[in-house]
Computed example of a mutant assay.
Amino acid sequence: MQLLTVSILYSLAVLLLIWGLYFLLGYRNQKREWKQKVNEWYPEQKRKSSLSVLGDRFDKSEASQPLALKLQGSNIALLPSEYIGVHILGALVLFVLLFNIFKLPGNITIILIPVILFVSHYLLFYLRKNKYEERFNSQLADICRLLGNGARSGLTINQGIEMVAREVGAPAGDEFKRIANELKLGVPLETALRSMQKRNKSREFQLFIATILIQKKTGGNLAATLESMSNTLEDRKILNQTIKTMTSEQRYISIIVPAMPIFIVLMMNNIIEGFTDSLKTVPGMIILALFLSGIVLSFFLIRKITNIKV
């Protein structure tokens, strides 16, 4: 009798061990699948150049976040550390150009390099201001058309967002992929849309989000509303493109006119030895200050005139 009891207990222990190993392996497989899905939904941003580990730490620090937001808003596909690396490389190139080719004195070269880099940094973000929002808004008409067709064919808003994430390219496609992944994880639709609304504060996108949320709460013909919005956004897109085409010459002139006199002065200094020596005197400095002020003023005036908002 005791032998039978021991055999039964031994068999139960073996069965429980096998059963526990089975569930452990199932849990490990399920965990591995979830990791793969999370990596697909939220892929890590790969570096585009061989920067050092110090650059990786800087990109993840809070000090780099304002610069990262500026780069994203300007639609520049660079990490903050890569952008700083470009400036360091630019400083070396400017030193070679100004000191060896244009024959400027060393002290003037050292002063000019940070000034040129600061001005180029400011002009870059000024000229490319809201480029990310502009590219995103240029895709809104197609997004409204896709969502409207999906609603007309019986798809829900969540399914329509997944369809947009598959069909539309960057940058709108990436944002809608992020929303689709958040919805799969159980985030409410309004919360996901509000988070994207904070990243794009343009008037067109605010209207788009408000339309979807109001239609979801009150009901109504979502397909007809989105189709009407798509036609309106398409007309605005055509009008904006027409204005850009008509003012393209003036916008290029605003860049060429300030650059030409500076290039000519540097070339003359390379050809005629001591051509810029008169700028070291007090009258020369006054004339140089007036000259630079006129260049800056002409640039901003031309850009202001050609900046027509619809």
Rank of each mutant, 00 (worst) to 15 (best):
M1L: 09
L3S: 14
L4W: 10
T5V: 11
S7Q: 09
V14K: 03
V14G: 05
L17N: 08
L17D: 06
G20S: 15
G20D: 12
F23D: 10
L24Q: 14
L25R: 08
Y27Q: 14
E33K: 14
W34A: 15
K35D: 10
V38Y: 11
E40A: 12
W41Q: 05
E44P: 04
L51M: 15
G55Q: 04
R57C: 13
D59H: 08
K60R: 14
K60L: 11
S61G: 09
S64L: 02
S64D: 04
Q65M: 05
P66G: 03
A68F: 05
K70Q: 05
Q72E: 11
S74Y: 03
I76W: 02
I76M: 06
A77L: 07
P80F: 02
V86G: 12
H87Y: 14
I88F: 14
L92P: 04
L94S: 05
F95E: 02
F95G: 04
V96W: 14
F102H: 05
I110L: 15
I111D: 06
P114L: 06
I116F: 14
L123V: 10
L124P: 01
F125I: 01
L127K: 08
K129W: 11
E134K: 13
N137A: 12
N137K: 08
N137T: 12
Q139D: 11
D142I: 12
D142R: 12
D142Y: 12
G150T: 04
A151F: 05
S153V: 06
S153C: 00
S153D: 01
S153L: 02
L155D: 01
L155G: 01
T156D: 01
I157P: 03
E162S: 09
V164W: 03
V164S: 04
A165W: 02
G169C: 00
A172Q: 02
A172G: 01
D174P: 04
E175S: 13
E175M: 12
R178S: 15
I179M: 07
N181D: 13
V187M: 12
P188G: 03
L189G: 00
T191N: 15
A192R: 04
A192Q: 04
S195H: 15
M196V: 15
R199V: 11
N200E: 12
N200I: 14
K201W: 07
F208H: 03
A210M: 11
A210G: 11
A210I: 08
K216T: 13
G219P: 00
A223R: 02
A224G: 07
T225V: 13
S228M: 08
M229I: 00
S230C: 03
D235P: 00
R236W: 09
I238T: 10
I238V: 10
L239K: 10
Q241C: 03
Q241D: 13
I243V: 14
T245P: 00
Y252K: 11
I253C: 02
I255V: 05
I256V: 07
V257W: 05
A259L: 11
F263H: 05
I264Q: 01
M268Q: 09
M268P: 05
N270C: 10
I272R: 10
I272P: 03
E273W: 10
G274L: 06
F275R: 01
T276P: 01
K280F: 15
V282G: 11
P283L: 10
G284E: 06
G284N: 05
L288P: 01
F291N: 03
G294V: 09
I295S: 10
L297P: 00
L297C: 05
F300P: 00
I302V: 07
I302P: 00
I302H: 02
T306W: 00
N307T: 07
N307F: 08
V310N: 08
